[in-house]
């Protein structure tokens, strides 16, 4: 007996479903996470190639032209997803077209006068539209993830207005404008809405699973639990990675240690993933924690000696808390 049949038998025995209820089809469209990742990355890259091809062929030089390309691409993606709901054949093509359409639409609005804030806000709106209308779980999950990242950028540029170039290549001297009080405000503004939404979705899981909202809520939860640990690596102004180089002249202040709280975000994401029994989301949270710790190493604003003391103190505190929790329950064992 398969796991689905086994569970249905238990549901019948408990009177949750009628004894003569038909058996559910065991056909599922679900893929292992690494297959979804492979297809997502490939679709995203293909979307960029498609857009470059269209841009070079059609000589798109105005925002209107980009809009006239992006909107039909998104519409075509919707039709493909809609026509092919129970198979995967057209899904990849639809994903690539959808990505190309999203980038084209965002670029069309910000082509000549875009600021960091306007680009991030447009991307957020486009992603929310895609999340709402695309009839495909993978497309909605990607949209939820990108929407959360767009929100992180939006919050960043709300407090620190900057040019479009700073979206990827760092805030340059703009972080110098960071006053102490802005750092906690920025962190809270960025993360509290995302944390609250993730927490609410987990608490209300049985409620939305029982309604049609599940088609939106499940991708939103997955996207959020990916964005919490990984979204802040590049997008927040005071937690640089890659191109976003922290300015050397940032004053020495204990506020510079604030990004270490992002490790706490990762721990929350790992626990939330555990609550919904998702090992791969827990793994991504652990990866995020490691990456945040390595960015903390390179963070200017305080000395390595202070960082060393902070990490050692945190280590002792965590160990004490862990051992105390361990002693609260019977039957504890080692981990492998």
């Amino acid at each position: 007996m398969s796991a689905v049949s086994d569970l249905e038998a238990q549901l019948r025995a408990q009177g949750v479903i009628p004894a003569d209820a038909p058996a559910a089809s065991e056909q599922t469209t679900d893929r292992p996470w690494f297959v979804a990742l492979l297809q997502g990355v490939a679709g995203w890259l293909a979307g960029i190639f498609l857009l470059v091809f269209a841009g070079m062929t059609l000589k798109l030089e105005s925002g209107v032209a980009l809009f006239l390309l992006g909107a039909p691409l998104l519409a075509a993606a919707w039709f493909m997803y809609h026509a092919d709901r129970h198979a995967v054949f057209l899904d990849q093509f639809a994903l690539a077209m959808s990505i190309a359409g999203q980038i084209a639409l965002t670029a069309s609005v910000n082509m000549h006068h875009g600021t960091g804030l306007s680009i991030a806000a447009t991307a957020l709106i486009v992603q929310l539209i895609v999340l709402s209308v695309m009839p495909n779980k993978a497309a909605r999950t990607l949209a939820a993830l990108f929407a959360a990242i767009a929100w992180i950028y939006t919050a960043r540029f709300l407090l620190l207005p900057a040019s479009a170039d700073d979206l990827v290549f760092g805030e340059g001297g703009h972080a110098l404008a960071y006053r102490g009080w802005m750092i906690p405000v920025h962190w809270l503004l960025t993360w509290i809405p995302l944390l609250a939404l993730a927490h609410w979705l987990i608490r209300q899981e049985s409620r939305w699973t029982a309604s049609k909202l599940r088609v939106f809520a499940r991708p939103m939860l997955t996207g959020l639990l990916l964005a919490l640990p990984l979204g802040g690596l590049e997008a927040t102004a005071i937690n640089p990675l890659g191109f976003a180089v922290q300015p050397v002249a940032m004053p020495l202040t204990w506020w510079a240690l604030f990004p270490l709280l992002n490790v706490a975000l990762c721990m929350y994401a790992a626990y939330a993933a555990f609550l919904i029994r998702s090992n791969w989301l827990s793994g991504s949270a652990v990866l995020g924690a490691m990456l945040h710790l390595s960015t903390f190493y390179y963070l200017y604003g305080t000395t390595l000696m202070w960082k060393s003391l902070i990490m050692a103190s945190a280590g002792v505190a965590l160990l004490i808390a862990g051992v105390a929790l361990e002693h609260r329950k019977p039957g504890s064992g080692g981990t492998t």
Binding site: M267, A270, Y271, F274, A289, L293, Y297, T303, L304, M305, K307, S308, L309, I310, M311, A312, S313, A314, G315, V316, A317, L318, L319, I320, A321, G322, V323, L325, E326, K329, S332, T335
Partner: peptide, 25 residues
């Protein structure tokens, strides 16, 4: 149990990071 494991492993990793930061300092 999950939280206890997370905290203990996190504690060991933090101590290790503290040691590396100390030498790098």
């Amino acid at each position: 149990r999950f939280l206890a494991n997370c905290l203990r492993i996190g504690g060991v990793l933090s101590l290790a990071a503290g040691l590396v930061f100390f030498v790098a300092a």
